[in-house]
Write a protein that binds this DNA or RNA. Structure first.
Ligand SMILES: [Mn+2]
Ligand SMILES: [Mn+2]
Ligand SMILES: [Zn+2]
Ligand SMILES: [Zn+2]
Lengths: 132, 132
DNA sequence: CACTTGTTTAGAATCATTATAAACAAGACT
DNA sequence: AGTCTTGTTTATAATGATTCTAAACAAGTG
């Protein structure tokens, strides 16, 4: 029931697949980062039926558009997503290819002193690459 | 002659192709951002002979490894590179898919208040997404 | 139940990037 | 000069994440 209203209120039909993906993504203690392939594996581990890969892509993009997921700007052969949709930043461990959350308070205020005519700021994200 | 020593000192043989790519990348007034496809086009416009796409990829990766190019962390269907290898940040215009340089002074000092055990910071990059 | 419209699905297509392996060229050393 | 080694280029194939297609299906409405 938990996610049915959330989906309906977003104009998304609460299908079995979407509800199951909601469980995997949002019914957790902590937020986490994932690629589509990692999510697919998590889904397989957690549910009995099969969800097609196309549906996983469709759903992740639908949720992203609605603001329930964020894409993390990083160069990898796969796209990383984040269930933490608050404003925050990331460490990226180059060796393990793992992301670590950094709260805004860990970075301090970022004061952009330059403006681009006719454009407004949608997001400000800091990526800190880590090496050994 | 300008780039022959640069390449030799990096342990890269100064081949005709690499020297020509150096001309396109570094013999310019201003630094710039590019994708491999954009670079390929620039090369075609500027030189007579043909350089294979594989060589363009090889060269860009070789130059990146040597620190003559930087990859810009962004989610796009193509990888963006930067001939500006100083520490700096970027606006990303979501509509035009164009990058704009932001100097460090435009962003102010970024003070990372958190450490990861056994890891050191390799780079700190701010990406500011712009919308209309 | 009937109808509409949104969703799921398997599979094909796309396309940036990487791998392959043969031809070629740079540099070193006679 | 010629010979040798090793790095580089090249056309082409392979890879693999992502997107597209269009048919089957399911949610919601009345
Ligand atoms: Mn990507
Ligand atoms: Mn990429
Ligand atoms: Zn995060
Ligand atoms: Zn730049």
């Amino acid at each position: 029931m938990k996610y049915i209203d959330k989906l309906r209120n977003s104009g998304l039909r609460p299908t079995k697949q979407r509800l199951q993906i909601c469980e995997v993504l949002f019914n957790t203690e902590k937020t986490f980062h994932f690629t589509i392939n990692e999510l697919e594996q998590k889904i397989k581990d957690k549910i009995d039926n099969k969800i097609s890969l196309a549906t996983v892509y469709n759903t992740v993009h639908a949720f992203e558009k609605k603001g329930y997921l964020k894409q993390i700007p990083i160069n990898s052969n796969q796209t990383y997503f984040d269930t933490n949709v608050t404003d925050h930043h990331h460490f990226y461990d180059l060796k393990n290819e793992k992301l670590i959350d950094l709260e805004n308070s860990d970075v301090g205020p970022i004061n952009i002193k330059r403006k681009i005519n006719g454009k407004k700021i949608k997001s400000v994200e800091v990526l800190i690459k880590l090496e050994d």
